[in-house]
Design a protein around this nucleic acid. Sequence first.
RNA 1: CGGGGCGUAGCUCAGCUUGGUAGAGCGCUUGCUUCGGGAGCAAGAGGUCGCAGGUUCGAAUCCUGUCGCCCCGACCA
Length: 728
Amino acid sequence: MDDRGAADVCRTPRSADADRQEAGQLLDPWQRHRRPSVLRPCPARARQPGRERRAVRRRRARRRRPGPQRGRRRSGLLGPVRAHRSDRGPPDRHQHPVGAGTRHAVRGPDRNHCLHGLPAHAAGRRRLRSAVPTAPCAARHRGRFRLGGYNPQLLLRSSVAMRLSRFPLSTTKETPADAEVVSHQLLLRAGFIRKLGAGLYTWMPMGLRVLRRIETIVREEMDRAGAAELLMPSIQPAELWQESGRWKLMGAEMLRIKDRHQNDYCYGPTHEEVIVHHAKQDVRSYRQLPFNWYQVQTKFRDERRPRFGLMRAREFLMKDAYSFHMDAADLDREYQNMRVAYAKVFERIGADFRIVQADSGNIGGAKSEEFHILAGSGEDLLAVSTVGSYAANMEAAACPPSGKPRPAASQALEQVSTPGQKTCEQVSKFLSVALTAKVKLLVAKGREGGLVAIALRGDHELNEVKAAKHPLIASPFEMAKIEDVQAAFGCEVGYLGPVKCPVPVIADHAALEIADFVCGANVNDHHLKGVNWGRDCDVAPGYDLRKICEGDASPDGQGEIKFYRGIEGGHIFQLGRKYTEAMSFTVLDEQGKAVTPEMGCYGIGVSRLAAAVIEQRHDKDGMRWPDAIAPFRVLICPIGTDKSERVKAVAEQLYADLLAAGVDALLDDRGLRPGPMFADADLVGIPHRVVIGEKGLAANQYEYKKRGAEKADMIDASVAAVLERLNA
RNA sequence: CGGGGCGUAGCUCAGCUUGGUAGAGCGCUUGCUUCGGGAGCAAGAGGUCGCAGGUUCGAAUCCUGUCGCCCCGACCA
């Protein structure tokens, strides 16, 4: 990395910290995580004679090089650090020495604008009061610092590198071969992300802006909801996981690492253990409860099969929050609080979403809901009521008894020959009875060993998640081995039935509601007709064991069920005392008695949300970002800048004016022909586009087009007219 | 974890069966023309064919191993 001419300028650890603090005060909120890049000479490096000589040679060579090659070098070869510092002119001109007493924010919106010397109130932040420009610096900028007509306060709010000629954007016409879903294809084509390995992606500058905006919205809503941000390490010691018992429970999904002392660590797939550990350190009294701590942190889950780009990546960005409470009622209050905050987040990023009931896993009684962004490419199937508010993940969707009494028996029991008819479909066709008039029997492994038979209506499917919760059935659910079933029943699996069944039978509610049904005779090549519960076999105890079907009545009695596909973007969960107990976290209550706190956890897949929004909002030309999370808000496309100085000048002026008005504007000053320029504009999906051309200017007009609109409108050639459209 | 496939220029891929001078399109560079929806012509730059062994006079091509990636399934929830 250091043979690229960076020997003369580099970051020292101290300056990086200090700079981050200082620059962070100057940038607008959603920019505050962007790395500041105030450069200073690095004494350690400069002292090395060989390095210094090489650097000097390179600097000289660079100066000798004619223009075009310099341009190429800046944009392509210098690597990300320099490439991102676009728009600030040649690097050497802005390398201010930074030391005690000098505070610089060299990042202006472009090389003609500098933040030096702005009044302290402009930033509204304490640190800026010490922002005194050094004399040489102030002098250097005096001649070119055009503040006329600018509102410095607004200037601060606008962003940094906004000329496409200096913004590393790399788009392709061709769709990458291994990208299956639209979001993955578009993110790659538009150069928002680049793949580094299986399930590993680099966020390129344009994409990172989107990610940061989503992050900011998440932070704002979490802060507003009263949660406090912290940041935990991504690497965690094994001891914590051994303490909670999950070191053994977690499968290969958890990436385990050894350090040089052969101590075990993992790259955190989640942070329950760490947060409880810290809570134990600092929280001892009921007076300190409740609280909610959150972080935005990179997680790693070693998925067996990472796919769909950001949707199921191995490394991803997640906001995870953990709350602690004295009792379940207070946990529930915070849970509802988070539920509201999450809804606001999803609304703000412009997602069409549903809150669905989720499976609470093996932690009985705990409440859990997922926030799903509806999309045909979603990995989860959702059962949603057509009328009421009921919505649940397929796994969790309840199938209660219909409440209708079982009809009386009207047929006599009869054994019929059904040679070779093993499946429900075959039998129902062979005997000409409806699939819904058949009962099928599945055999699962029992919790205490042995076998358990599960009776379902012929057209229904077993929900294994529900089955695993049944006291008689093994958890995790496992079907019985075919040989064991044949040994127990004395017939092939195609002819099983509840009559004279050799193993305990449990039944789904729906199977219990039919009379005169058909089922296997427990004899090869034979079925029974006219079977009735109670008369012909014991009435099996009824449970909810099946998967819900499209068209079923909604469990809340309002409307019927329709299926949607969704992308899980958020998940809120009442954990109860699972982790606090396992890790012996207690606080003293008012009576001085030790109490184990209740815990909740709440996650949002930040990087996944970016992909999910694209899945919902795109067309054949590219992405369509909502204003709230677009990488830029408005794109200025001047046409024919090589011929028309006027177009160029007008575009520059509009760009400057929009920045001054606090609008995140991007100027396409690459001088491309209109075709590629518009194609890129559509692909990147910036919500508003202003085209400036000689034709329009002749009539004193700009062309305005909202991304996705049918056609463009001509508007007055003024900032006011543009702003009006932006705010429409 | 089981099955299948692919690693050749920055990207998408051909060439491999049947061993003998490494190719196309896109992109990139330069020039001229063109330029309101992914331009044309001309001239260029760019690859130790994933890596390591082996067979052979000779390997992108055949063999063995290895690494990486992709797809299907199972697993996980």
